[in-house]
Nucleic acid binder design. Structure first.
Lengths: 346, 346
DNA sequence: TGTTAGCACTCCATGTCGGCGAGTGCTAAC
DNA sequence: GTTAGCACTCGCCGACATGGAGTGCTAACA
């Protein structure tokens, strides 16, 4: 995999990738010598290109069109050739300003991040909200709906509100509910859902006799409220940006991509993967096992609140994406969001 | 507008509309006589078609293609010719079963309705959740975030949860907050937000001296929490269905439609209009002043909870939509959702 | 030995042309 | 009032030529 490539080969591969990113069209030997001031003749470039093709960095769609980079080519470009410059202070400031966060609640923040991300990058923005199990408990509330049905409202340290309806076995009175609510709101704050779950599981193992009635009731209630995993929330913005990419202009490809973006489950898997590592991650087209987003690349970065990694944001676009532009944006945005989440939790 | 059309004219217009709905292609005189067993010759049909074109029901895209219905033609078809059959008991049952509502909270219900609506109709589903101002108060809760910032959680009679962050002028203590919360939760349930607002406005007119401190504090807090209009929530499902329509297969038209669907504000306006009337409403293409959804039709119906009209659901698709199929579905779904909302509120 | 110029070749994209099919409008006959 | 017939109009499609861009190969050059 770690193929050696001499300086000239690198230069030419870089030129091809950049031209292809700019034009979305196969790149010929001639146009390279013209556009990039190389003191080489087209013929020489052709030789090098033939070598690059043999090595798997390039391929030609037809005998006599130019060449386009393969995913391996893109990989090499990103890993070795691309130098990501940091954003200037001015750019950072401008980017920070595009976000209008004040007064928004968590969900709106996620939405807003996606919106801005898509707006500046000109691609489609993705944000996966903090995982439920990794959020830190701040407040819980029970509201009685019809007989036996309870609405549970859960607020995390970062202000994320989750709610669900549970069917309680017992028809609690308002007083009982209030006492349990108070109990839980005094006991649980500061713990993550994951911690609460393990503690709950532990305590349920002990003999019930050891608990007083209140504790027991509260535990059974919070078990119903917090044990189930809640579906991840993914916010997608600027899907129509996908339509602007020439490589997806045929109806067939569009349909495929839109189905993928709509179903969300593929995205969750992918973003989950990205969450594991830290810093900016790049998934290129076919590399992702799901060929559902064949032809797409994802640039993503996890962001974090107070306790460990909690969410992922990123930009999805064609493989032929402007990496040098988007990578620093994603990177900085993740930092920004992390800072905000930590501030919220003060 | 109320042009007279003899029986034959009606028959032929109906045939053309139906063929066009089925094929998305201009309809010729010949194919009509073939497909619909009319004992008329193509020539006769041609004469009638020429008349219909003069009257504005039809138009021909080219000198010598078939004819396609104008929006006026569609209108006439829907108003006069189309007979909407009710769903059979079996179909109703089947439709009811596709909805899996149990245990879902309000927001999920809206989402689910859109999903199913889009699934059965094969077009794009739209649901506008109950307007905030028309919902009936059930419960309110304040959670302190960082200094001075309060998360307000509001639960409606139907289990809809809304939340927002407010900046309180005073840094209330936990006790004060609890007292106010209790006060509000005892005073307000059963009133609609609209009613609460007017009452609030009225009482603020009176001299402040008449209220005790608790009341005054609670009023100022609930003013901050409930006075602002909250953005309407629109749930869109199955946007990719739009891509399947041949009339939107060109990239340009796709982009236009997707922008419209993404921005939501146009949709809110449109759905708002639909909410005013009761029963199924149909908006055809250019009739909607926003030509942003030119080439689209909307079939919608309001649904209601306990107090008056509260939301709208519908299906959006090409003008050439299968009205006879979709109208009863939208109609019945609206009834179904209304029933469920009323049941929730028992 | 590496680089370059030249040349024949391959393909795609574009434009033109003619035929075919579907449809129309008109007229004359029934 | 209805129908058959006919000339006419277009759009669609396949065939064909053309030009341009690119390639691979070979031979000459430094």
């Amino acid at each position: 995999m770690a193929e050696e490539l001499n300086q000239r080969g690198q230069d030419i591969l870089e030129a091809i990738v950049e031209d292809y990113i700019a034009s979305a069209e196969p790149v010929g030997s001639r146009s390279i010598t013209r556009r990039h001031a190389m003191d080489l003749s087209p013929a020489t470039v052709r030789n090098v290109m033939a070598d690059l093709e043999d090595m798997g960095f390039l391929c030609s769609p037809h005998t006599s069109a130019g060449r386009i980079p393969t995913s391996k080519g893109f990989h090499y470009y990103i890993d070795t050739l691309l130098e990501v410059r940091d954003l200037s202070a001015l750019e950072k400031q401008r980017l920070s300003k595009s976000y209008q966060f004040q007064g928004l609640q968590m969900e709106d923040v996620m939405q807003e991040v996606g919106r801005v991300l898509s707006g500046i990058s000109s691609y489609t923005g993705l944000v996966m909200a903090p995982k439920f199990s990794s959020t830190v408990f701040r407040h819980i509330e029970f509201v009685k709906l019809s007989h036996g049905r309870l609405l549970v409202i859960f607020v995390s340290e970062t202000g994320l509100v989750q709610n669900k309806v549970i069917e309680a076995e017992v028809d609690w009175s308002a007083q009982e509910l209030e006492r349990m609510t108070n109990y839980l709101n005094h006991t649980l704050p500061g713990m993550s859902i994951q911690e609460i779950r393990t503690r709950l599981a532990d305590e349920l193992q002990l003999e019930k006799a050891r608990f007083d009635q209140l504790q027991e009731q509260a535990m059974s209630l919070s078990k119903a409220a917090l044990m189930d995993e809640i579906e991840e929330k993914v916010f997608i913005s600027g899907t129509s940006r996908m339509l602007e990419q020439p490589e997806f202009s045929t109806p067939g490809k569009m349909k495929k991509i839109f189905h993928t973006l709509e179903s969300k489950e593929h995205l969750v898997k992918l973003l989950d993967q990205a969450q594991a590592a830290d810093g900016v991650q790049i998934f290129i087209g076919s590399q992702t096992e799901h060929d559902a987003i064949e032809g797409c690349s994802l640039i993503s970065s996890p962001f974090s609140g107070k306790k460990g990694a909690v969410g992922t944001l990123g930009v999805i676009g064609p493989v032929r994406m402007d990496y040098s532009h988007v990578i620093p944006i994603v990177d900085f945005t993740a930092q920004l969001v992390s800072r905000i989440l930590k501030r919220e939790a003060e």
